[in-house]
Design a protein around this nucleic acid. Structure first.
Length: 212
DNA sequence: ACCCAGGGTCATA
DNA sequence: TATGACCATGGG
């Protein structure tokens, strides 16, 4: 059933081409900045960072925290996100950069990411999937509502439990998880133009399909 | 003027 | 384990 929902979304919207970034490190930065924040705001923040050559960990660590906060201001929560960016960059460099990180197994990578203050389960999985191409299904609020409403997975399950349930039922690879999560987000955005946010409307198409 | 977005932490019970 | 306060901007 998870497969059929995927195909319906894909047929409706086509490939989404996530993650919108120039390289893996930029994906990590974007994953922090987009926490509870519209992507349009994140784009402005990243533009600010790029303008000041701050899309590298060394630069982010060397500029003054207050200035970093100013650069990412459009993304909101700029003070705490400035700290989180620094935490992530310190970890990134301490580990030895992309070369070393790429060689690590997925579980070790996730543990390392989660140990960074400011990186929670969803942000960690964003990074695992979209920066390191690991076969990890990213669970967000939309995913819970979608699969919950379709009666496929209990939306109240803890994050890790919900994720492993999806992966167990779906048995997909990284490219599939990549498109699936992007499609769910896109679906929520375009189909939720009507006011009652997302409870009755945005899942209707998919749920009507799954009910047959 | 109001609502919330591609979450996470910390204090509290 | 599970709530609640808190963080803050821009676009609808």
């Amino acid at each position: 059933m998870l497969r059929r929902i995927y195909h319906k979304l894909f047929r409706a919207y086509g490939p989404q081409g996530w993650w919108p970034a120039d390289d893996a490190f930029e994906v990590m930065i974007g994953a922090i900045l987009t926490q509870n924040t519209a992507w349009s705001n994140v784009e402005q923040a990243i533009a600010g960072l790029r303008k000041h050559d701050c899309l590298k960990p060394e630069r982010i660590l060397e500029i003054h925290p207050r200035r970093l906060a100013k650069l990412i201001k459009p993304s909101g929560y700029f003070n705490i996100k400035a700290k989180r960016l620094r935490n992530l960059c310190r970890w990134y460099l301490d580990q030895g950069g992309m070369t070393v990180l790429t060689g690590m197994d997925t579980d070790s990578l996730r543990k390392g990411l989660l140990a960074v203050n400011g990186v929670g389960p969803e942000t960690a999985d964003d990074i695992l999937l979209y920066a390191f191409d690991r076969p990890v299904f990213v669970v967000d609020a939309y995913t819970r509502r979608l699969f919950g409403r379709c009666g496929l997975i209990d939306p109240q399950l803890p994050y890790e439990t919900f994720r492993t349930e999806v992966e167990r039922k779906l048995k997909g690879d990284a490219p599939l998880y990549n498109e699936y999560h992007a499609l769910i987000v896109h679906h929520a955005k375009v189909a939720c133009r009507t006011k009652p946010v997302c409870d009755g409307c945005c899942l209707q198409t998919v749920c009507a399909f799954s009910a047959q």
